[in-house]
Design a protein around this nucleic acid. Structure first.
Lengths: 236, 236
DNA sequence: GTTGATTTGTGCGTATGTATG
DNA sequence: GCATACATACGCACAAATCAA
């Protein structure tokens, strides 16, 4: 379970985070690093490639490998991502509570079947809940999930669906999102998402999927306009 | 300039796109593919890994490599990304026009310097423009750029800044975004982003950077609430 | 439940290609 | 042109996960 290239990647990460290598700095060349870790250049190359993908460093043929100038910047932002937006993070789970408005099972429409990629005879959960963070309203969620993946309970819905999935060894891979600004609906007012009929809401429709490409949840979340920062990084 | 692993990746992509391999299908094993392309398993492994990163396939040790079940779905959405939101795409440039409201040079504040990572003595461009897509208002942009990267002109601003950067051989890497829903401001009304003072706007603040990690643009864009779909994919 | 075959993942060594300065 | 440094490619060995007999 202990891979060399991951250890090397970790060690280099460490040195960047503690300031041994500063933004813009040239790292030792791959042969040097290989010597230092008592391994070959190919393994070092693999470790470095992972860090390139993470956006921490970049390599130039013939020149060397450098620490990205904006790394410290990204680091700050990445924290906000995990703190706030990432549904797969556990950090907030203590102070996060849910009030369940609906919890039922029904057959999906054809459009819903196409999104969730389930067979015609499979039924789906339909859930609506309001989420509170440290007592304050945080979001309104409406989602669909096939009943074939895990069995949902009131208990699970009060806490975290994602946590239950992980506990049952499902591996969550990623999410696809469509983001809008919308006018508050009457429901938003009733649910307490907004105080005022003229307040805007941030609406995110997202499809979450497992590592085998199976979508497991079709989700719409509505956030109060003032509280919501959605953060995303895009690499081309 | 012709790498084998890229050719292999392309060939497999092709077969997935034309339906030779369907979603959920098991691909031939790496040794088979290696034979087919007259190469070694390591090279095939590399090609496949790239496709895994792209979200087209997934591999399981001991089992094999499969086409992702939701690939066709993602493919559809990806079109919208490039059509609509990606500032680095050229597709729209014909029908996209700009009305320039401000185009000036000044010294940055300290906060701005920190974001753009420029030296204290470097001045920055400040630009405000309204963008039109096929005659209709599309967005309002306000951005800052260091004067040290490229020389901006009215001509460039009417068209595409990104295109000019590419023409001068700068390689754009990615972007970091913070997304909000906000109430329309008076300016939004004046600029025609909204018709109505109660309409919401989708606000995106983003930092765009080059491949060496140098941020080149700090940008705030305001979109009319009805016209804007922002699409993003996140892989964990 | 164990074993064995299959398949992907990792690691090493070496050689060659290609971009930079 | 030359030295340097990263990138690709090949071949082999072994480890780890999966699945079926």
């Amino acid at each position: 379970m202990n891979y060399k290239y991951i250890e090397i990647a970790k060690a280099i990460k460490e040195k960047i985070n503690d300031g041994t290598y500063l933004p813009g700095d040239l790292l030792p060349d791959q042969t040097q690093i290989a010597k230092e870790f008592n391994t070959t250049r190919s393994t070092v190359h693999k470790a470095l490639k992972d860090l390139v993908i993470e956006g921490m460093i970049y390599s130039k043929r013939g020149a060397g490998t450098f620490v990205r100038k904006d790394y410290s910047l990204l680091k700050d932002h990445h924290q906000s991502v995990t703190d706030f937006d990432d549904p797969f993070s556990d950090r907030l789970s203590n102070s996060l509570e849910s009030k369940i408005l609906q919890f039922s099972v029904r057959m999906p429409s054809e459009a819903e079947r196409n999104h969730l990629l389930v067979e015609p005879e499979v039924s789906i959960y339909e859930v609506r809940r309001v989420r509170f963070l440290e007592g304050e309203i945080f979001s309104y969620e409406h989602f669909l999930m096939p009943t074939t993946i895990i069995k949902l309970t009131d208990e699970i819905l009060k806490k975290s669906v994602y946590q239950s999935l992980r506990e049952q060894n499902f591996h969550i891979e990623g999410t696809h999102r469509i983001i809008n600004a919308k006018k508050a609906s009457e429901k938003d007012l009733k649910n307490g998402i907004v105080q005022n009929a003229t307040d805007p809401v941030l609406v995110i429709r997202q499809l979450n999927y497992l590592d085998d490409g199976q979508p497991f949840q079709l989700l719409e979340t509505r956030y109060p306009f003032a509280k919501s920062d959605l953060i995303s990084d895009i690499t081309v």
